[in-house]
Amino acid sequence: MKRNGPIALIFHAFFVTFMVAPILVVCVVAFTSHGYLSLPTDGLSLRWFREIANYPEFVRAFWTSIYLGAVSSTVAVVLAVPAALAFSRYDFTGKGALAAFFLSPLMIPHVVLGIAFLRFFTQGGLSGTMAALIISHIILVFPFALRLTLSAATGMDRSIESAAISLGAGNLTLFRRVTLPLILPGVISGWALSFIQSFDEVTMTVFLAAPGTETLPVRMFLYVQDNIDPLVTSVSAVVILITMVALMILDRLYGLDAVLSGHSDRNS
């Protein structure tokens, strides 16, 4: 394997700086002790992290996001597993169209999704409710859940299932004791990716969230629209930290490039 030359390495350094700079600057500014946006020149201060506690709407929004992400990813995965099994093992009329339908939320601009859901739930009298948020986030994250469970189901050695059947396993036992454990890595990473997508979503959610059901990104977005101050940087820093931890776990478990490109086949 050829090594990278000096020009390549300079380019690489520049590139990495470009990628990291905005994230780093948020995290650094968050540690300022001043009451205005500034670099923490006189030592790191946790002032603005403590300040978050005085803004209950940020804390509430954080828990709303966690709850929303957990519920919608769980439902999405529960729906995605049987669908993935059907897609991976059977051919049927309309298979391609159905797959495109299930993946379409990836292609539809989130503004359009937000508008469509707002109209739909307003007509149904559910506008601004948690239920509306959950249902719309299930749709939003379903493609991610489906892609990862599908690649796990496709990569599975079917003769392992045949072996279990020949040993006398019934349908339920087969699923519980063999199929599910085998596709579990894909299911878990599908869930995690779904959770992160839901947790970070702002564009669609901004249409649907009411003051009681604002998610953290929505609260942050609305706050930043009015003014940018150290408080919102400390909140962002917390979010970045949480994502970073989740990322490293995902990377350890399955390899980040695999998860992101939809193949969780490292374990099979």
Binding site: M220, V232, I240, A246
Partner: peptide, 24 residues
Amino acid sequence: IFLLVILGPLLMSVVARTLGWALL
């Protein structure tokens, strides 16, 4: 390591990342 650094931002809050640019 660098894959993590470069691909990782994909999963980070867009608001937080854009806030970073606003600061820069």
